[in-house]
Amino acid sequence: MLTLQFIPYGELSSLSSEKKIQKLLRIVREDKIVLLEGKLGINEKSELIRKTMEEIDDKFKGIEIEDLDLEKKDKAFFEKIRTIFINFILGSRKGMTIIGPASIIKEIKKDPDKIQLFTEDTKKKKKK
């Protein structure tokens, strides 16, 4: 059975990057797929990869991760650049992130306005 766990932005926003990553990895290691409201900051993403590598063993094979922008495309140019830069560094409430165990998720494809998630067992296509 496939379990999806939704995490609203508010549940992680008060946590430090370290605690945020610990929490995400703990859920993924329970063989659940995380649907996170918002996006991680760029340093948080590399830290998530680093921490994942530390935890890989015979049972835990790592993660698949993908995120999606939900920004309005008609924003003024300078406002858009400003928002992109801030979100890039700090992460953002807008958007959606999917993180799951590599043993369950075979592949995540971004298209780029939709995310397709292919699971290892069923290879059925799920869309978000």
Binding site: N43, F88, K110
Partner: peptide, 17 residues
């Protein structure tokens, strides 16, 4: 291969930052 992977985006984003 598909260039839109989170690994590529994360590496390039970190360098940009």
């Amino acid at each position: 291969k598909d260039p839109y992977s989170q690994v590529n985006i994360t590496i390039i984003g970190n360098l940009e930052a």
